[in-house]
Design a protein around this nucleic acid. Structure first.
Length: 311
DNA sequence: AAATGCGACAACCGCTTCACT
DNA sequence: CAGTGAAGCGGTTGTCGCATT
């Protein structure tokens, strides 16, 4: 009573800033074993020198196995724009319509791309208005500008031509399964695949041919923990490693080697894809020759990788 | 080649909401 | 019903890498 809100964590000794690979693995391993029913207690129990909030954020925004990742498709962007018109800055509500996307991700793409695009569009329109060449509406029912139409038409393999944002209604309204619909529409090249561009920092969709992007099996309900544990009882699992005793990846290297080699012998298993993907995302792919998708994610060789981790 | 600017995105902070007692 | 703690949410900042000068 009267004590006010307790800080979410003890600030002293709590690490801030970017997460290291070892921290990621600790977090993944802990959640695999114990779940995340109590974020506040998680750091202490897992041996992480992080605030519970920070752990939650890292998990939700980056480590969760069902994240879609990759650039937003023009379809998704249009859907975001429309939903933003309806919901405002309710990022979590918007994100809930895009399984595999996070509120943070959508917020970022709005602030960095879509807001500017709309602004440019509006100023373009107002200048046209001043020339009396266009009617005055700024409603979302207005036709898409030419560049937007162009983007949509070129990015989608469907034969649909979008002439107004309202045409996207079915995509947005079909909230029962919006993303699979979008993925199927856009990447009918392989209906079971989502296309993930792991290392794309310039987010320029139009400049990326499909061949330059990397495909992994698209499985929104994928249970990563089943994958990591697998069936092969003789192999080493990430969950077998006692991460509480690990501070640097140098110490982890033998375990990861073992794991990687064992998994390589079982790469007929579809689970392998996700494991490889995760390892690469974490920068753990230091045995590239064993991976059927060894180009995913990591640009680093093993020596470089493990040297760079120590802090 | 170095300096600077800019865009993208991960992460933090503080407030709100929710669930429990 | 009020108080409390924890999770969730949204705004903002910090950092990194690339492009430009």
């Amino acid at each position: 009573m009267g004590k006010g809100r307790r800080p979410c964590c003890d600030k002293a000794g709590v690490k801030k800033g970017p997460w290291s690979q070892a921290e990621d693995i600790k977090l993944i391993s802990f959640i695999q074993k114990h779940g995340h029913s109590n974020w506040r207690a998680l750091p202490k129990l897992s041996g992480l020198a992080r605030c519970g909030k920070s752990c939650r954020l890292r998990w939700v925004n980056y480590l969760r196995p069902d994240l879609k990742r990759g650039n937003f498709t023009p379809h998704e962007e249009e859907a975001i724009i429309k939903l933003h018109q309806e919901l405002g800055n309710k990022w979590s509500k918007i994100a809930s319509k895009f399984p595999g996307r996070t509120d943070n991700e959508i917020k970022n793409v709005w602030n960095t791309h879509l807001k500017k695009r709309l602004k440019a569009k509006e100023s373009k329109q107002s200048s046209m208005e001043s020339c009396n060449t266009l009617s005055t509406t700024t409603s979302i029912d207005e036709p898409l500008d030419e560049s937007m139409k162009d983007t949509l038409e070129h990015s989608s393999s469907s034969s649909t031509t979008y002439t107004s944002i309202e045409d996207l209604g079915p995509i947005i309204d079909d909230l029962g399964d919006p993303v699979s619909t979008i993925v199927e529409n856009i990447y009918e090249k392989d209906e079971t695949s989502a296309i993930i561009d792991n290392n794309n920092n310039n987010n320029n969709n139009e400049n990326n041919s499909l061949d330059e992007l990397i495909e992994i099996p698209f499985e929104p309900n994928l249970d990563i923990w089943d994958l990591l544990d697998g069936d092969n009882s003789n192999s080493t699992h990430l969950s077998d490693v006692n991460f509480n005793e690990v501070d640097t990846l140098d110490e982890l290297a033998p375990e990861i080697d073992n794991l990687t080699n064992n998994q390589a012998n079982n790469n007929n298993d579809g689970n392998w894809w996700w494991l490889v993907y995760l390892e690469n995302e974490l920068g753990l792919n230091h045995n590239e020759s064993t991976s059927p998708q060894s180009t995913i994610g990591s640009n680093h060789g093993s020596d470089q990788l493990f040297k760079g981790v120590e802090s």
